[in-house]
């Protein structure tokens, strides 16, 4: 197999596979260059995370202030309440559907831009990014106008005689998944594009020369070699989709509450930051463990085959 090249590419180091791929980028110059990024992460990611961790073992005193007087894990046991399970399962279902749709739509788009974009590649990529120039909230409200009972879509269907009565699309699972797929699609396309664009197409050519069918060459050469991009795209879609509460709030309805919406309620209307933090941490834990398992098994699939 040709997969031996993939790990070398992945880690950007020309070294023997596996164990020697350790992150030893030692020189002082590199450290200085990395410093701003590290400081940024510490200040805006680790510190807030640490504050959240501290708050999550606290409680709210009768005056409504967060207090650490009796630290304990009570918030965590409270957060394991089975009442959250339906919302959690619903969130996972939305995120999974969104990820599958984003990859299914994103892969052909990225492939097409990379293979046939020619000198317009940059322009096409800018077009993929273009929606980011408008606030996500405004774009989501635009979907409300399209999807509601007397909206653009239903009017078109009514006028064309395909339906006699408006189909309720807004405030259903369909509208939430559609809105999330729309929102997260660019996050899927960009890493897919990078990995497809870096693919050496002479490999595909070689497979064809060795009598692989078009489908066979894609399944046995293109797809495995672009798997790192697919994993990245999948994670970049699934993780934010799992935590999204804007789309379900705007496009969802009474029956589409996600776990993120419940966390938000605990923080705002419930005014219970310690409890909300604990629930947030549990969700983060679930996400991290799931991500690690996914990365491990996929890494084995991509790299392990040659070892």
């Amino acid at each position: 197999m040709t997969t031996a090249e993939a790990p070398a590419e992945l880690d950007g180091v020309t070294a023997p596979p596996r164990e020697a791929v350790a992150r030893r980028s030692g020189s002082a110059a590199t450290s200085i260059l990395v410093l701003p990024g590290v400081l940024w992460l510490v200040a805006f990611f680790l510190v807030p995370l640490a504050i959240m961790a501290v708050v999550s073992v606290g409680s709210v005193d009768p005056a409504g202030h967060i207090t650490l007087a009796n630290p304990g894990l009570g918030n965590y046991t409270h957060a394991l309440d089975p009442e959250f399970i339906p919302a959690l399962l619903r969130s996972i279902w939305y995120a999974t559907a969104t990820t599958i749709l984003s990859l299914g739509i994103g892969y052909p788009v990225a492939y097409w831009i990379s293979r046939y974009g020619g000198r317009h590649k940059v322009l096409l990529l800018i077009l993929v990014m273009l929606p980011f120039w408008t606030s996500y909230l405004i774009r989501t409200y635009a979907w409300v106008m399209i999807l509601r009972d007397n909206g653009v879509l239903n009017s078109l269907l009514l006028d064309s005689g395909l339906i006699d009565e408006p189909i309720p699309i807004l405030n259903t699972d369909v509208s939430v998944i559609l809105g999330m797929t729309y929102g997260f699609l660019p996050y899927a396309i960009l890493p897919l594009f990078v990995s497809i664009d870096r693919l050496d197409f002479s490999m595909v050519q070689a497979a064809r020369d060795l009598y692989a069918s078009g489908r066979g060459a894609f399944l046995h050469v293109t797809l495995p070699l672009t798997m790192p991009g697919i994993i990245a795209a999948g994670l970049l879609t699934f993780i934010p989709a799992l935590g999204d509460f804007v789309t379900p709030s705007v496009l969802g309805g009474a029956q589409t509450t996600t776990i993120a919406k419940l966390v938000q309620t605990i923080f705002t209307a419930g005014r219970d930051w310690p409890y909300g933090s604990a629930l947030g941490f549990l969700l983060m834990g679930v996400t991290i463990v799931g991500t690690l398992i996914a990365l491990r098994s996929l890494r084995r699939e991509v790299i392990g085959a040659s070892a």
Binding site: D61, E83, I266, Y275
Partner: peptide, 18 residues
């Protein structure tokens, strides 16, 4: 509502929403 009482509301509200 005092925090403890509000928590009784929030828990039930979340159970309803979920």
């Amino acid at each position: 509502l005092k925090p403890d009482d509000l928590a009784e509301y929030t828990d039930r509200w979340n159970a309803l929403q979920a």
